[in-house]
C-alpha cells in the first residue's frame, strides 16, 4: 500500500513542477505555492516509502560486525538492531505527533497565493513513525518465528 502511495506522490511532484514550467513558459502565469505543493508531495513519497525499506531490509547498513559473527551471534545482533530501530521509530512517532499538535496550536501556514496550514503536510511525520514502528515490529516477529529466513534476507542496499 505505502509502496503505491509513495510512487504516486513522486509522480504528483513531477507533474506539479512540470505544470509550473508550462504555466510560466506557455501562459505567462506564475502561482506561488506550487513549489511548496511539489516539495510536500516529494516529502510524502520519501517518508511513506521509508517503512518499505525496513520491511525489505534495503536501507544502507554497515555489515562489518555481522560478518564476523556466528549464526547465533548474528541473531543476537540483529535483535539488538531491531530493538534500536523500534526505539527510533517510536520516538519519531511521538515527536511527529507533538509536531502536529504544536502546529495546530501555532496556526502557521505557507505564505503566498496558496495558503496551506502547516499541520496538514506535517501529519506525514507521525504517519511515517507509525508505519516504521509497524514494519519493525513485523520484522521482529518474523525474526522470532523464522530466524534463518530473516538473517538471509536480501543484502543491504539491494532493491527488489
Amino acid at each position: 500500500m505505502e509502496e503505491q502511495a509513495g510512487g504516486l506522490f513522486l509522480f504528483v511532484a513531477v507533474a506539479l513542477v512540470f505544470a509550473q514550467i508550462v504555466l510560466r513558459v506557455v501562459f505567462n502565469i506564475g502561482i506561488s505555492g506550487v513549489y511548496e505543493l511539489a516539495t510536500f508531495s516529494a516529502t510524502f513519497s520519501v517518508l511513506l516509502t521509508a517503512s518499505l525499506g525496513v520491511k525489505r531490509n534495503t536501507h544502507v547498513r554497515v555489515d562489518i560486525l555481522r560478518n564476523l559473527l556466528s549464526r547465533r551471534g548474528a541473531l543476537v545482533l540483529e535483535t539488538v538492531v531491531q530493538v534500536l530501530m523500534l526505539t527510533v521509530s517510536l520516538a519519531l512517532l511521538y515527536s511527529g505527533w507533538l509536531l502536529v499538535d504544536e502546529s495546530l496550536l501555532f496556526g502557521d501556514h505557507t505564505t503566498g497565493t496558496i495558503e496551506i496550514p502547516m499541520w496538514a503536510p506535517q501529519l506525514i511525520m507521525p504517519i511515517a513513525g507509525a508505519l516504521l514502528t509497524l514494519r519493525t515490529l513485523q520484522r521482529i516477529l518474523s525474526l522470532i518465528r523464522t530466524p534463518d529466513a530473516v538473517l538471509q534476507s536480501p543484502t543491504p542496499g539491494a532493491v527488489d
Binding site: E3, G6, L10, H59
Partner: peptide, 13 residues
Amino acid sequence: LTTAAATASMVML
C-alpha cells in the same frame, strides 16, 4: 515509480 521512490527514499532519508 515505486522502484524510484524506494531508491529516492533511502537517499533522501
